[in-house]
């Protein structure tokens, strides 16, 4: 019940915000703007889909921004300099990302280290390696890039649902199914509830941890590929700080940073809210784009305060005995 409440609150904030924006700039309420919003935030949505697993399991992954940067540089170099076919380059980079995530998960589990520190190290490592590969921005001119950029589903009202926006939506749906409908997903929630109890219930905690960080890194790699389509270039400085935008989207989407609770749909709404603020600032034209960060910061505070308030409320209301009705008890 509480999970659905926080999704509802996020949805209300999104709708109210959108209506307010549309009242000031009627043009915002068009399929064109909405479709662009999806395209512009496609990579953020994909990373957030991975981050949600990590955070629900009680961890955090600070390396995702660097992994995106690394992926764009690696793909650009592979396609443009090393002559590897784009699809092979994608497969290769995703395998590298999977190994990277698995290594972080293994270190976290085996040495019982805080995920914050391990993924912080991963963040520096991935960023450092991408600088080693190249410090300049490498334009990508492979034919597949222009083909994918040109592909779009035309929407009524002139909007174009681009390939990368479609990719994000597909990935979100797949992740939602994985999180909410499978044993794997249930185990992720279990880990966030209590690691010790999960282990006692016979769930293999180590392999689970490894798989969760692997998933996050692979999705960050996918986000990097999408980002390279979006910018048609590879650059080692791309996506700096995206890990924090991602965490913000997840929290605004109603997920507790302590783990054990959250949803993919809420996270998607969180991504859209961030995109909406950005769109508003673009429309206004006089505001500095850094206002996005300020607005996001304020929203974060509001949401965290709201969550705490709701939890306190729930705690107070659950003091009265909750619904246990034993069959035989007729006293």
């Amino acid at each position: 019940m509480k999970a659905s409440t926080s999704i509802a609150i996020t949805a209300v904030v999104l709708v109210v915000g959108f209506v307010l924006c549309a009242l000031q700039f009627p043009n915002i309420a068009s399929t064109r703007v909405v479709a662009n919003l999806l395209t512009d935030n496609a990579f953020l949505g994909i990373v957030a889909a991975g981050m949600i697993f990590v955070i629900i399991s009680g961890g955090i992954d600070l390396s995702v921004g660097s992994v995106i940067g690394f992926t764009t540089v690696f793909v650009a170099l592979a396609v443009e300099r090393w002559g590897i076919p784009p699809l092979a380059a994608f497969a290769l980079v995703l395998v590298l990302c999977a190994l990277f995530g698995a290594a972080m998960g293994a270190i976290i589990h085996v040495f019982d280290l805080p995920p914050f520190i391990v993924t912080l190290a991963g963040m520096f490592l991935a960023r450092g390696v991408s600088f080693l590969l190249s410090t300049e921005s490498i334009p990508i001119t492979a034919p597949i890039y222009s083909a994918v950029s040109d592909f779009a589903i035309r929407l009524p009202g002139g909007g174009r649902l681009t390939a990368i926006a479609i990719a994000m939506l597909v990935i979100l749906v797949v992740c939602a199914l994985l999180l909410h409908l499978t044993r794997f997903g249930a185990n992720v929630y279990a880990l966030g509830g209590s690691r010790a109890a999960t282990a006692l219930m016979g769930i293999p905690v180590g392999p689970m941890t490894i798989r969760i960080y692997m998933l996050s890194s692979v999705l960050a790699g996918l986000a990097g590929i999408v980002f390279s389509f979006y910018t048609a270039a590879g650059y080692s400085l791309s996506a700096v700080g995206v890990e924090l935008d991602t965490i913000a989207a997840v929290v605004i989407g109603g997920t507790l940073l302590t783990g054990g609770q959250g949803s993919v749909i809420g996270t998607f709404l969180g991504v859209l809210i961030q995109g909406m603020i950005q769109t508003y600032i673009n429309f206004d034209g006089t505001l500095s784009s850094w206002w996005t960060k300020i607005a996001t910061g304020v929203l974060l505070f509001v949401f965290i305060a709201l969550q705490q308030g709701l939890m306190a409320l729930a705690r107070r209301s659950s003091v009265k005995p909750a619904g246990a009705k034993p069959v035989g008890a007729s006293t």
Binding site: A186, Y189, A190, G193, S194, A196, A197, M201, G260, Q261
Partner: peptide, 8 residues
Amino acid sequence: EVNLLPNL
């Protein structure tokens, strides 16, 4: 102290 998962 019950060793189960309160959030599930």
